[in-house]
Amino acid sequence: MIKEYIIEKGLFSINTILIILSSLMVIFLLNESIPIIQNYGIGDFIFGLTWSPDNNIFGILPMIAGSVIITGLSLVLSIPLAISCAIFLEEIAPSNIKKLFKPIIQTLAGIPSVIYGFFGLTVIVPLIRNNFTGSGFSVITASIILAVMILPTIISVSQDAIKSVPENYKEASFGLGSTHWQVIRNIILPTALPGIVTAIILGIGRAIGETLAVLMLVGNVNIIPTSIFEPARTLTSNIALEMGYATGIHYNALFTTATVLFAMIIILMSICWMIQKRGVGNAC
């Protein structure tokens, strides 16, 4: 009895500590953002075009644009690849290939981002510079590397979604004389869609939050890019670049940047939950 009690209370307090910790982080973020919201207004901060800490001008629209464009482009590159890969592994690949691929994909997910950045720096940057225009430090360079980084997340989560499509739907479709491709397109993909959307949103979360690899490749120039070969700056790289020397209101501006990023991720996650809930409702 006493043992049960200790275990229960122990687990409870660990949970409580975790909840308090994460709440404290959010409170800290918000608290440090207050001076900016009071002095500049959240609207001017978000929609301001100029970021000039020396003159106390703080506008992060170019960085929001940078984050959104780079994330979007990396998704455009990775989604078709990842979903095809998931379909191949679950539906077509013989089991020994599937067994071979699983650890490879997991390893891909485990490589530290600095190594991805380093690879981009030595391979993709010169590739873009020599074959296209610009310095090579550009939106497309960062997007290519980000696309590779989010591939494993999207692949493994969509793979789980495809695996959980009930066998009897597939059998029924085969039984009516469907080709394998018709079963994939008409039964597997629609049924697995909520899971695939979740996979994509997790990928977005990872891409938008990625800092180091992007920082190494994107050029960090604070403009709204007009072409994919131009440099840009993201919300995350802005924080990482300037945190070291920021003081006073500049320091608060970086925290507000983080708050904006946090809000964007919360919105994404809520969309994810909503879609999952709807998906479950449809299946029953």
Binding site: N168, Y169, E171, A172, S173, I187, T191, N282, A283
Partner: peptide, 8 residues
């Protein structure tokens, strides 16, 4: 089939 399996 044994178990009725209409598509969703």
């Amino acid at each position: 089939f044994q178990k009725a399996n209409p598509f969703p």
